[in-house]
Amino acid sequence: MVNAVTLIPAREHDRQLISKVEKEAGTSINLCYQCGKCTAGCPAAFAMDYPPRQIIRLLQLNLVDQALEAGSIWICASCDTCSTRCPRGVDIAALMDAMRREALYQGKITDKKVAAFNKAFLNGVRNFGKAYEAGLLMQYNLTTGQLLKDAGLGLPMMKRGKVSMIPHSIKGKDEIKKIFDRAKQLGGE
């Protein structure tokens, strides 16, 4: 896949966005000298359109929109191998996470499945105060149109006492709802 790009002077909007993401991740992309050690050690790199090094490269070139639309920021497993081994001390994993949150915030959801999974998970937490695994899988399957995915595992799980169809709430579940709301209000910084 070859894109030719015309490099223009950085737009203020892009610079600010990159700064915001850097600040949230607590790292600096200027440190990166593109050695590739992060991609080399990334267990998910084989499936990425822009593996970690390239995401940082896009940001270094101020092509932040292209980076936000990448699929790789969604399948980053946050395993932190890249950050642990980076010779320049760049926290790439934190950066990928920050980029994913920004993409979600902007509605640039390149990976509908991962976004749906996260949404379903947090939905359970918000409603009951604890993760509701059966509900998570049902909501995920529904919203991604994979109605029968993992259906074969349902019964075996139940037989082993490993899944409950009924959610368990905590006493303070209202507190949890409030935490969700307040976090959203304070801008999620």
Partner: peptide
């Protein structure tokens, strides 16, 4: 061009993960 992230053994040989 790429730094090696990990070296590990496979049998009596060595595998390098790079980019």
């Amino acid at each position: 061009r790429g730094r090696v992230s990990k070296i590990y053994p496979r049998g009596d040989r060595l595998v390098l993960k790079s980019e």
